[in-house]
Amino acid sequence: MKLFELLLVVLTLASGLILLGEKLYFAKRRAQRAGLLDTEPVMVDYARAFFPVLAIVLVVRSFIAEPYKIPSSSMMPNLLIGDFILVNKFSYGLRLPLNNAKVVPFGEPKRGDVVVFHFPGHSDNDPAKGENFIKRVIGVPGDQIEFQGNGLILNGEPVTYDNKGLYAGHNGQGEGSSLLVEHLPGRTHTVLETDYARGQGQWTVPAGKYLVMGDNRDNSDDGRFWGLLPEENLRGKAFLIWLNCSGWFCKDGFEPSRIGTAIH
């Protein structure tokens, strides 16, 4: 994704600069030297054809909505491997491509939001540092959170759960886990848990940080293990599943029922 973003920015700038140079200098020079019937260079033709498309894609992808594919089971049962999702890029402020710097601040993550972010890494040498991850916001600035025995205690109050029985699984993932409805204040969503609870601990969330967890609680590498998420790492809020397709050309499965599913 980072390579594609870099390539998109470079191609957009290059084609734009070619067109600008053509308009301000090279077209006039050719007209003076060879007359108005002199043909444009092939590079200018390509830039004229591709620049509008590249610019639109860059603007939409950077500031409006960006597609992602779910690669792991950490957000089951709500997001499945092979789900293609859309992420609202202006929910938490407008950010520049490449460096993710916020240029127009507005909106903050709310408890229960499903967010995409640049992984801060377990260490500075973590090869996954900077990659796109997706988790759910559990703690916002000012929260005190305790996670013990697969149960959350939020600001001194235990979070309640409804047990919906055993999860049937999806493509061999999550089968036999307990399916629970978790009632965060003002937000309700499903989670999975097993008999092997992981990630016990306590956290106080300071300003500018968030505690994020996967919905597949015992199969998620999240903030319980690598710490609190800095606000500047946020990419946007996941809001829609637009396709589910596993494997090249959907050879491992296609689930039309998931198309258009809202992410809660």
Rank of each mutant, 00 (worst) to 15 (best):
A262K: 13
E182C: 07
L240M: 09
L24T: 15
T188L: 12
A14F: 07
D215T: 04
L80D: 02
F117P: 01
H170T: 12
C245E: 03
N216Y: 00
E22K: 06
G236V: 05
G227H: 02
Q144L: 10
G174P: 01
R33D: 13
D45F: 08
F90R: 12
F106Y: 12
R235C: 10
R111P: 00
P141V: 13
S74N: 03
M1N: 13
S74E: 00
V42F: 15
P71L: 05
F51R: 03
E175I: 12
G253Q: 08
P230V: 06
Y68M: 05
F119M: 10
A207G: 13
C245P: 04
E22D: 15
Y92P: 04
M75C: 04
L79A: 04
V114C: 02
N100Y: 07
Y167C: 05
D252T: 09
E131C: 06
A31T: 15
R235M: 15
A262P: 10
Y25I: 14
D195M: 10
Y210I: 03
W242L: 02
V42D: 11
L211R: 04
G169P: 04
N216F: 01
I153K: 14
L86G: 07
L154T: 12
G139T: 06
G165V: 07
T160K: 11
G130M: 07
N88W: 07
N233W: 03
I85H: 02
L94I: 10
V115R: 00
